[in-house]
Design a protein around this nucleic acid. Sequence first.
DNA 1: ACAAAAGTGTTGCCCTTACACCCATGC
DNA 2: GCATGGGTGTAAGGGCAACACTTTTGT
Lengths: 235, 235
Amino acid sequence: MSPEQPPSAGYTYKYPRPMITVDLVLFTFVQQELRVLLIERGREPFAGTWALPGGFVEIDEELEVAAQRELWEETGVAKVYLEQLYTFGTPHRDPRGRVITVAYVGIVGADETHVIRAGDDARKAQWYNVYALPPLAFDHGHIIDYAVQRLRYKLEYTALGFLLLPELFTLSELQQVYEIVLQEKLDKRNFRRKVLSQGIIEKTEQLRYGDHRPARLYRFSAAAIELEKARRRFP
Amino acid sequence: MSPEQPPSAGYTYKYPRPMITVDLVLFTFVQQELRVLLIERGREPFAGTWALPGGFVEIDEELEVAAQRELWEETGVAKVYLEQLYTFGTPHRDPRGRVITVAYVGIVGADETHVIRAGDDARKAQWYNVYALPPLAFDHGHIIDYAVQRLRYKLEYTALGFLLLPELFTLSELQQVYEIVLQEKLDKRNFRRKVLSQGIIEKTEQLRYGDHRPARLYRFSAAAIELEKARRRFP
DNA sequence: ACAAAAGTGTTGCCCTTACACCCATGC
DNA sequence: GCATGGGTGTAAGGGCAACACTTTTGT
């Protein structure tokens, strides 16, 4: 139906075809902020503007593989847990022509966020506070809004908030994650009872020493986490 | 970046591009069965095999508009409430080459299901019991499984099950919808209390006469339904 | 009159919420 | 010793699940 010529001649099709990209909204939580990973574009269109990592899907490449590849090439982040978010395809969302993008959301633990580097056609890569974003290329602001909604939804119904934190964390830190993502204040005692009752995080023997009384550190049990992810709330 | 030639010459691009389709999973509930709308394909590949309605997205066409158009062309069903389901893009899911499909789910009231007709490259159009499907083209079986999960999820958390029924329905019919979609038996009294407490369906003065004691008919309040849809559970 | 589906309330339990004080450390 | 965040229990109320019998019609 659609013969594909050797690259020298280009590829000719009977009907026009859109281009397909993937874009990624990666979240983490550092210094009391919910942050999202952005790159500064090195090329037109929107050269010099901040944007989500992402790029064109190759012709024989699984969508999620394309997402992981772009993430690696542009930011040096590897092997993240991703979930498909939504496909945005409004005509003229991209000045280059018809570009349909499949957006993914991912969550990175705060202890893996230092590995970022800029690469490929990304001039810089940087984590930004979700509530203080720079002007963004394309409809990426809209995509991020949508991803934040999804993240909120996820945290409301699961105990997966710790995915945003480093391996060891205190319950107060975890509560902060929930308060900042959900944008509401939570009761300390109820919060603790609830997350502990889920049985997905466990006490360690370690304490964190800081300005005041030391806080007990917790970690999550890898087994429980897989279970929890498995019964995803929005299949 | 990608000049588009006049149709006579075809369209030539520097890099190969996938094709983009939309596919639709339309549900309804008739004769105690959860049914999905299928067409029999009129062309290769899979000519003569049952498949979801759907087809290629035009170059300047909004995705959801493409979905509504294909639905209309192939089955005569118009203006249905649709929700984007998921984008399936595994290479070789379509023998014609790389085809990425954006799947939509929709729900049709049982009183609108008679309007279907076959059209375009669909030889027939027919409603099939979801739990007794014929062999399906492409990965459409998989897409339907996914859509059923989503429907289940939706009914678990909302009172929107009546969208599958005709305008007037009895509470027993509504309960059947839930029992058959969720595949579990429900308690009559608890079920009634719950759906009535949601305030989204209302009593009418009419009764349905049948083999036994007549049953009161209910309808949904259009206002409430919009509210309920608005706070979609999986944004 | 009988078969079959429609319709109707109450109770116990659990989960959620609201709420206030002592504890351990750094300075 | 005091300021600061860490840590803990209890009581009341609301929502959910379990449960059985009466009513109304057709035949």
